[in-house]
Each structure stands twice: as structure tokens, then as C-alpha cells.
């Protein structure tokens, strides 16, 4: 079962501020999702190799050749708060 403390922890890692009501709603939804996923545990996977991919492919590469980048204006246009050539983000506190 997912607890309120779990929700607060994950929210902090994701830099999200949740109100009490929101946190409770998230807890309920996450609990429902996890309960659904838990159904998979009912499967008998004895003798099945763990895998991270369903497709039987390995070694998919591209050659080291330069492709055009997106124009800066187009990229910056998506920024909530552009600053000339740069993206502006809230102050980073390191100490």
C-alpha cells in the first residue's frame, strides 16, 4: 500500500509542491495503479529470463554524422521564461 510519506517523497524528488488534497488524490491514484500492476505478480514466471525489452533487437546504431540542429529561436520559443540566447530557470541553490 502506498503511504502519504511515499507520495511526499516522490513529489519532493520531482520538485512538485502538492496541497494536502492533491497529495491524497495522488495517493489514491498511485495506489490504484500499483494494485493493477500487482496483478502481474499472479503470473508464474518460474524459469523465465528477466528482460527489459520485448523486441528481439540488439546493437541499433547511427553513424557519427552531424545533422542540422533545431534553430535556437524555435527551441527557445518553448521556454516558459527565455532570456535571450538562454533558458531562464529558478535560482539554483547549492550552498
Amino acid at each position: 500500500m502506498i503511504s502519504r510519506a511515499d507520495v511526499d517523497h516522490v513529489a519532493r524528488l520531482a520538485r512538485l509542491t502538492l496541497s494536502d488534497a492533491e497529495a491524497e488524490r495522488m495517493r489514491e491514484q498511485l495506489a490504484a495503479i500499483l494494485a493493477y500492476i500487482n496483478k502481474l505478480r499472479e503470473l508464474d514466471v518460474e524459469g523465465v529470463e528477466p528482460t527489459s525489452h520485448a523486441v528481439p533487437l540488439v546493437n541499433v546504431f547511427r553513424e557519427d554524422e552531424v545533422q542540422p540542429s533545431l534553430p535556437r529561436e524555435a527551441m527557445i520559443a518553448n521556454a516558459p521564461e527565455p532570456a535571450g540566447e538562454l533558458f531562464r530557470v529558478p535560482r539554483i541553490i547549492e550552498d
Binding site: E81, A83, L86, V89, R91, I92, D95
Partner: peptide, 10 residues
């Protein structure tokens, strides 16, 4: 760093 109102990213 102490007084910066925001940070900029490249």
C-alpha cells in the same frame, strides 16, 4: 551564486 535571482541554461 548567492545573489542571483535566477540561473540561465545553455
Amino acid at each position: 551564486l548567492e545573489t542571483a535571482p535566477s540561473s540561465l541554461v545553455d
